[in-house]
Design a protein around this nucleic acid. Structure first.
Lengths: 213, 213
DNA sequence: ACTGGCTGTTACCGGTCTGTAACATTGCGC
DNA sequence: GCGCAATGTTACAGACCGGTAACAGCCAGT
């Protein structure tokens, strides 16, 4: 009851390495990567700085490990999207929108990856590769989904939805979740409707793409 | 030729206060607010730390002054929008899109305000008021423009374009300007077309709103 | 020429940060 | 029970940071 309280995660079922990553992600998220020191991370993780430095050679290495952890966690979202709507790419696009809304509305600290890209301004920071690859992969997966769904301007729709999500998550940090990002789903559905048909002049849309209310 | 070279701005026509703000904005932009010290700012501005602290009581004060400077600079954009298309709100909306594209494509460090909101993670940071007011004002002005243009779902369009711009500017910092933000104008025009008409089912759009190619 | 305000210079304080060294301790596999 | 690897503890180095004090010079307005 003295050291193993609910706050910091002391020696639980997780090994120090996992606890450090988990704690670092939370503290980075709350205070920014440059706003928290390795000492605070180690202490909050129920360990000490030496152990931290034995697992991660430097703070940058820890940052990279955290970002990789974020990326691994996001893999689950895509598999969930597939298993929830097997063989139905269009439904998966709509489901993606709903998942994105949860990310955009239920959280006021945005995307860890995007935040890291802003905070680690140096162009040659080693973490930038991780960020770029992650973001590109996310966008490309979304584009593939749109193509599989038979959407006319699939890549343009993917870019639109992608920018919408990026914008919503960063917007939350300036004007809050009650701002424009509150209409995330409505806007996304409108985008899907707009890009699903061949051209705005020709209303000869495919039947399977006219699901939007 | 020894001290007044092209690099740092030494005693030019600007007073120390202006030079400090100008220099701080540039350095903040390049390295992040937490990534540059007041000493470096003062030196690069051709002055010293004491003068800096005589004008700005603290680094936070300097940050706020910089953000106010950004806000003041952006005022010009709106007046330019009005003078370039006097009495034509719809044209101003399209012009806004083009100006936004320049912001989004011609720059890889995003919006100073949004970046500050991310970097200054503390919810009670004094600069947050400036950021929030600025962003809300920008969005509201855009919404007023859309309403004046007679666009059906004016507020929804404003939110869409707003999120699109926010997304494009933050996206540049992870995947670069050649990524999704390259299609900023195309997406924006599609959104204008989509929200200009009353409902997607009723193609009875107003004539003045059907300017999009 | 004088004066008063603005600016420059130097030195310093206390704190915090990343990263390391040396040593003590725990705990698990055998 | 032993040994070895992982972990904890303490102390420290070196750098940087925000912020202040005391004093020296400059320059415009009168």
């Amino acid at each position: 009851m003295k050291t193993d309280d609910a706050g910091p995660l002391r020696s639980g079922p997780l090994r120090p390495r996992e606890r450090i990553i988990k704690t670092a992600r939370e503290l980075f998220r709350r205070h920014g990567m440059r706003g928290v020191g390795v000492d605070a991370i180690a202490e909050q993780a129920g360990t000490n700085k030496m152990t931290l430095y034995r697992h991660f050679g430097s703070k940058d290495d820890l940052i990279i490990a955290c970002l990789r952890d974020v990326a691994a966690e996001n893999e689950q979202i895509w598999t969930d999207l597939e298993t929830a709507n097997p063989g139905d790419p269009l439904a998966q696009v709509h489901a993606w929108l709903r998942v994105g809304a949860e990310c955009a509305v239920g959280d006021d600290r945005g995307c860890d990856m995007a935040n890291a890209a802003i905070e680690l301004a140096e162009h040659d920071h080693p973490a930038r590769h991780v960020i770029e690859e992650f973001k590109k992969a996310h966008r490309n997966r979304l584009a593939q989904l749109c193509r599989d769904a038979g959407i006319a301007k699939a890549d343009l729709l993917a870019d639109s939805l992608w920018l919408l999500l990026e914008g919503a998550r960063v917007s939350n940090q300036s004007v809050g979740a009650a701002g424009p990002s509150a209409h995330f789903i409505a806007i996304g559905e409108a985008m899907i409707a707009a890009f699903a048909q061949e051209t705005p002049a020709k209303p000869k849309a495919r039947a399977r793409a006219a699901v939007v209310a």
